[in-house]
């Protein structure tokens, strides 16, 4: 859905991840970009250059926060000091929504700095949803959880990944950041049909979409974010926008990052895949009037 309660009723277009190699270009040239997604942790610092850059970006652009370390699926309680820093940043950016991953990555206060897959069980879904609610209530901002790419599955799982995602977001009453590249990567690694996944997620909860590039190896695919988006992912994206509506979309490019213009051009390719969804949106507007 283009604007819903999970993305703060905004109607953002096509955005880019804000990355260090592009800082100088953005600050100097001020290119027209619908919005930037920042990695929250890069700016959860106490001072210095990162915050100076962020403030300059905030003067010119709409910014949405995306986190990589909240670990909603970890059994540990949310860390108060972490939440406090995150809330300080939320106040600074005025992000209309905040996203992080449906994963775990820490235990007993030790961090792996990875986005590890969940065991898809009802107990895990319940615990994860509780944490999402706690974090949302503390931060006072809508939350979208992102499906991760994965390379392993647990024997303990009791349902599919998309059933687990649905279970969590319904229990937490939160939104979804639908990463279609991650769906594709996991579908190849775990032998499921990515369209089954897309057709079964609660579409009315999708507040944002991610696209990215990946790398194929002989026996698996890795979510590397170091390539342009591949055709099968764009096709999934087109399907997702038909089901969910034209939704705020972001291209992730995190390694071997080319020039700003190249990354921006790649992101804008999304326009070519959302014609169907745009037409449906127009029809709906005409019908409503």
């Amino acid at each position: 859905m283009p604007a819903n309660r999970f993305n703060g009723h905004t109607d953002y277009g096509i955005g880019l991840g804000l990355r260090v190699p592009h800082y100088a270009h953005i600050l100097e040239k001020k290119p027209v970009v619908d919005w930037f997604e920042i990695i929250s942790e890069n700016f959860m610092v106490d001072g210095g250059r990162p915050l100076e850059v962020l403030d300059q970006i905030l003067e010119q652009y709409q910014v949405v926060q995306h986190g990589v370390s909240m670990y909603f699926g970890s059994a540990d309680k949310p860390d108060r000091a972490h939440l406090k820093k995150l809330k300080t940043l939320v106040r600074r950016t005025k992000t209309p929504w905040l996203s992080d991953h449906l994963c775990w990555g820490s235990v007993d206060g030790t961090f792996t700095h990875d986005l590890l897959p969940m065991p898809y069980t009802f107990a895990a879904a319940k615990r994860t949803a509780e944490k999402i609610r706690q974090v949302r209530d503390y931060l006072e901002v809508p939350i979208c959880v992102e499906n991760v790419s994965s390379y392993a599955e647990f024997h303990a799982s009791e349902m599919t990944e998309w059933e687990f995602l649905g279970e969590v977001v319904e229990r937490a009453d939160c939104g979804i950041l639908l990463d279609v590249n991650n769906i594709y990567v996991s579908s190849k690694n775990h032998d499921f049909n990515p369209y089954d996944y897309l057709n079964h997620v609660p579409h009315d909860r999708v507040g944002q979409i991610h696209v990215a590039g990946h790398t194929k190896f002989e026996k698996y695919i890795l979510d590397t974010h170091d390539h342009p988006v591949l055709d099968p992912v764009w096709k999934l994206y087109a399907h997702a926008t038909k089901r969910c509506g034209v939704t705020a979309t972001l291209l992730e490019w995190d390694d071997r990052i080319p020039s700003f213009d190249e990354v921006h051009d790649e992101a804008l390719k999304a326009n070519a895949y959302i014609g169907g969804a745009r037409a449906a949106k127009k029809r709906a507007a005409v019908t409503a009037s």
């Binding site: 970890s74 059994a75 540990d76 775990w104 820490s106 235990v107 007993d108 030790t110 792996t112 590890l116 065991p119 069980t121 107990a123 895990a124 615990r127 647990f154 303990a156």
Partner: peptide, 16 residues
């Protein structure tokens, strides 16, 4: 089987 948060923590501790 994972029936509780304690079970989840046990699995996560092992994998970590």
């Amino acid at each position: 089987r994972l029936h509780t948060t304690a079970d989840l923590r046990t699995l996560q501790r092992l994998m970590t």
